[in-house]
Design a protein around this nucleic acid. Structure first.
Lengths: 247, 247
DNA sequence: GCTGAGTTTATGTATAGACATATCGCCCGT
DNA sequence: ACGGGCGATATGTCTATACATAAACTCAGC
């Protein structure tokens, strides 16, 4: 396809050359014109096609490579990647912010809070080997006075000493941590359970009703910071993840 | 901090200069040395610090900006971004590949397949306004002969005409689509339900047992391609999402 | 036919310089 | 006080060039 034809297709043509190049290539990939495994033109050819320098082409291709749309191999060339799996960016915001964004009144209630030297179960759950001090918290979030989720959390006090000074009677621990403690790795596990009597009472639902469970572990530089288990009423709450191919 | 000190810290120092710069800055952000809102040095200063050209610094900063770790504003400078929300890349692989990766025997069974002009419910579910033809499929996936998930899918035949030629008696529709149809947007919703009698029978679990439900919609350039609802036994199956700050 | 060394080639990184562009602040005139 | 204009400045894009590096290919020698 010629440069003229590319220009003619102009849907929202970006103002800069490298963005134009990136978008042209992206479109060919997404429409299937260049299927997975297809070798896309060499930087040298693209550069002549657009009449620009190689650095400009390289910038466009580097960004596409960073977005995992293409794979670059020295000497061999550049290839369209097979969409390896359906992946989605799952946003799990701070619950207080999430409820606020929905325009509903946020409510928070601390059920229990205890500071102790970590017992075996605590260490197992946090994934720490050495003895440490922890804070164990149970609390409940609500939206417009309707129970929204119950939270059961452990915080490693040795890794997050500032947590000793936080007032979890007022601030939800998730919000406090999010704003005060930088983290580098997080892992979420999502599963489904049925409410036992305790959960049913806390969430004001029937015993046996389905619940969504999110367990989250957070680390900083490999060191465990906190482990949290959130239980949501399952049929009312949905986790939504939207994904756009790139940009 | 001096260049010498940076070098001294060498944890897995990358081989190239721009990666070194990027990693040094990333470390300062992740350890909290440069908190959110902090203005990081100008390109000019960083360039003198490392004794390199501005383009090299620019490449490092551009990548950090693309990863949303920093925000760049002309004339004002470059700033550390507030970690806006906990987000995680949730990988939802092809079920056949997922079971295979676990080293278990994959089994697939087509329960029903029908081709029809979309009725109101179909159009509502797919999110299309105009009449179209669809394929409606129900099938079951199993691992080592244990039911793994039941799938209920609609495919827009007008958007994916090739689907008419696919043999869904043999190929699971998810795998076929993943390998044949490029998509640009996807949305997942995750929720929990309890098994009714039909689901319990299909998954070989008790009525009333918890189930995880994933509903996925896929589009290409804004046009709906397929809508699928997957039901998993909830206490056995977990969705895991791991997230590293960047890279 | 096979192995290993050398050649070729496409990408990867880096440079110095140039001009574009957005915008923050300052100054000036009303 | 207030607003408009303007210059300073940091980032954004682009060029032409250079050398590094990894991998695919070639071919001689066994």
């Amino acid at each position: 396809m010629s440069l003229a034809e590319d220009r003619a297709k102009d849907h929202a043509k970006p103002s800069t050359l490298y963005k134009t190049i990136r978008q042209d290539i992206e479109r060919r990939i997404l429409t299937g014109e260049w299927p997975p495994g297809h070798r896309i033109p060499f930087e040298h050819e693209i550069m002549e096609h657009y009449g620009c320098s190689r650095m400009t082409v390289n910038k466009a291709l580097s960004e596409l490579a960073q977005a995992d749309l293409i794979e670059r191999r020295r000497r061999a060339g550049t290839f369209v990647r097979r969409p390896q799996f359906l992946s989605a960016v799952l946003k799990i915001p701070d619950i207080r912010a999430e409820i606020g964004a929905l325009g509903r009144a946020y409510g928070y209630e601390l059920i229990s809070s205890a500071r102790r030297t970590a017992n075996a179960a605590d260490r197992e759950r946090l994934g720490v080997k050495t003895p440490c001090k922890v804070i164990a918290i149970r609390c409940r979030h609500s939206a417009d006075n309707v129970p929204f989720a119950v939270e059961d959390r452990l915080i490693d006090l040795d890794a997050v000493p500032d947590a000793a000074k936080a007032n979890f009677k007022i601030d939800p621990p998730g919000s406090w941590l999010l704003h005060h403690v930088p983290w580098t790795e997080a892992e979420h596990a999502i599963s489904a359970i049925v409410a036992d009597e305790a959960i049913a009472a806390s969430l004001d639902i029937e015993t046996g009703a389905p619940c969504l469970v999110i367990e989250r572990h957070t680390w900083r530089q490999g060191r465990p910071l906190t482990a949290v288990r959130l239980v949501y009423p399952g049929e009312q709450h949905r986790l939504v993840a939207r994904f756009r191919g790139s940009e």
